[in-house]
Write a protein that binds this DNA or RNA. Structure first.
Lengths: 204, 204
DNA sequence: CAGAAGTTCTAGCGGTGCTAGCGACAGAAG
DNA sequence: CTTCTGTCGCTAGCACCGCTAGAACTTCTG
């Protein structure tokens, strides 16, 4: 233990670490599954412990608290959204902006619990300064790339924030059944039309 | 009791009803104050009962449960937002759309707990069909009126939904510190510019 | 094998939303 | 004035929550 570590010891240490990492992953996965199946209200530390077949205190040896677990699920979700946005390439005649918007809204519609953890529940994820998770930067970066072709002379970052805010607003209000479903298509058309070729290019 | 009620009885009945209505109002007010002072997490039935100086079960003789109390606060909040929007008249050179947007965002910024109850927490308020509270219709109506001058040939209701969604997205993402504060002004300018005089009027 | 080190579990704390059932009190009847 | 009756608010308690101290078990070391 002191100087040269013996062979078996290191190997066992490695196995332990691997098993621990695997269990860490298992907890996050179980939390996500439980939330997606029954909503975040159903994700209690007891039920989660049951699902991973350990006792509650084990959760606290991996995460500081329940919030940290939700945060881990949220960050993983950001990675997935980023991946979806990256893979979504427009077919001919489709604008990149539209494909991004549809992908984003489909994600929010099909994974409402995941979306909630990412963008609705306040989670103390350090957005502003400091350690912003890479997954988040990736997702936002994809939105920036989708907005870029229509930016004209407008501030790219601010325009992306507007785009994102609009999508986020639609996503959450739709989820809360606060918008008319029959206007879904028209609504998106109007948003894309407004953001795209605008009168900001040059004004005589 | 049976047929002709005696005079005194009716009067007492009235007093009782008045007192009961007053207490009802008091509970809603206390819940709103507590939420605005310390957030909705601090609004527990015990603390609320303490604040109104009754025991917990009294709350349940007025409301079906805690959710119903939050809902009552939310509906009251909608009324207040509607009133603010109605009173907000543009000074010269200011578009009605801009005034509405600024009023809406200021409300969300200054009354975050109230805004949360209204539009973020899911609350089973019947938005779609059925008994939509008048306060809600009023608030949405004010947004429609603000959008109307810039509608062009676009679907008024859908365009209002887009406007509202964008404001809602900005409001919630700002509250969660997920947007850059230094872009606040630019962001709103971009949104209003995009929604206003668009290229949709007529296309050659 | 005994002891040390590390890990997991049992049990419990103070809190939550909510409710059963008791006791006090006001109005009606005699 | 007494007695009955029905309403009303309270005490006390349930099942659950997030979280943790300390016992109990396993595993490695000498």
């Amino acid at each position: 233990m002191s100087s040269g570590a013996r062979f078996g010891s290191v190997s066992i240490q490695n196995r332990r670490e691997r098993e621990r990492a695997e269990r860490h992953r298992l907890i996050i996965e179980a939390a996500r599954e439980l939330a997606e199946a029954e909503g975040w209200d159903a994700v209690t530390t007891r039920r989660l412990a049951d699902k991973v077949e350990y006792s509650q205190p084990v959760l606290y040896s991996h995460f500081k608290g329940k919030d940290a677990i939700v945060r881990a699920v949220a960050i993983e979700g950001c990675g997935e959204l980023a991946r979806l946005l990256r893979q979504a390439r427009p077919s001919r005649g489709e604008s990149r902006l539209r494909v991004a918007a549809e992908t984003y809204l489909r994600f929010a519609r099909e994974r409402p619990a995941l979306y909630d953890a990412m963008f609705v529940q306040q989670s103390d994820i350090p957005w502003g300064t400091g350690e912003v998770p890479q997954e988040l930067l990736d997702a936002f970066g994809e939105l920036v790339a989708a907005v870029e072709p229509v930016r004209g002379e407008r501030d790219l970052e601010a325009l992306t924030e507007v785009f994102w805010s609009s999508l986020h607003g639609i996503a959450t209000l739709v989820q809360g059944k606060r918008l008319r479903p029959e206007l879904d298509e028209t609504r998106l058309d109007l948003l894309l039309g407004a953001l795209s070729l605008a009168q900001h290019e040059e004004r005589p």
